[in-house]
């Protein structure tokens, strides 16, 4: 009996990858950890930066000849905008401080006025009491009783 197995490219690819990765992993990690690797990386970095520096200088001089602003000059404008924004931020912070100071002062003022209001109420109460006290004798001295007879005869007289 023959068994047919279908060819699976992906499984093969995965197997190749896994075998390669496991075989080379340690060797690669060893190399990456060596001082000589860091040194080589530094050399490549140096060459790249030398090239990039040259490109930067050439671009700048080219733009200057064409009378066009360089990246540096354009970014300077952006920096000015950012600086203005920072100043607005500072102002906002100061306003926040002032706002909280002002609201605190208003709160204290409100309390002061409330206290004053209560004191005024007390003063008025005391004054009205003292007036009442002063008026009591007058009220008792009002000759209501003697006037009654004088009215009475008048009524009677009408009758």
């Amino acid at each position: 009996m023959t068994q047919t197995t279908s060819y699976d490219a992906f499984t093969m690819w995965k197997n190749v990858y896994e075998k390669t990765e496991s075989t080379w992993r340690d060797a690669i990690q060893d190399t990456l950890g060596k001082e000589s690797f860091a040194e080589s990386l530094g050399q490549i970095q140096s060459q790249y930066l030398q090239y990039q520096g040259l490109v930067n200088k050439l671009t700048e001089s080219y733009l200057k000849q064409l009378n066009l602003p360089s990246r540096e000059e354009t970014s300077n404008i952006a920096s000015l905008v950012i600086n203005v924004e920072s100043k607005v931020d500072d102002l906002e912070d100061q306003m926040d401080v002032h706002k909280s100071d002002t609201s605190r002062e208003i709160e204290q003022l409100k309390k002061g006025i409330n206290n004053l209001d209560k004191k005024m109420d007390k003063v008025i109460e005391l004054i009205s009491k003292s007036i009442e006290v002063q008026n009591i004798p007058k009220v008792t001295a009002t000759p209501t009783a003697p006037t009654a007879p004088t009215i009475q005869p008048a009524i009677n007289a009408k009758k």
Binding site: L32, G33, K34, E35, F37, A38, E39, L41, G42, Q45, S46, L49
Partner: peptide
């Protein structure tokens, strides 16, 4: 590896 790669002597 970063300690190695960013070594002051080599990393500019």
């Amino acid at each position: 590896h970063y300690s190695n790669w960013l070594d002051k002597r080599y990393f500019q």
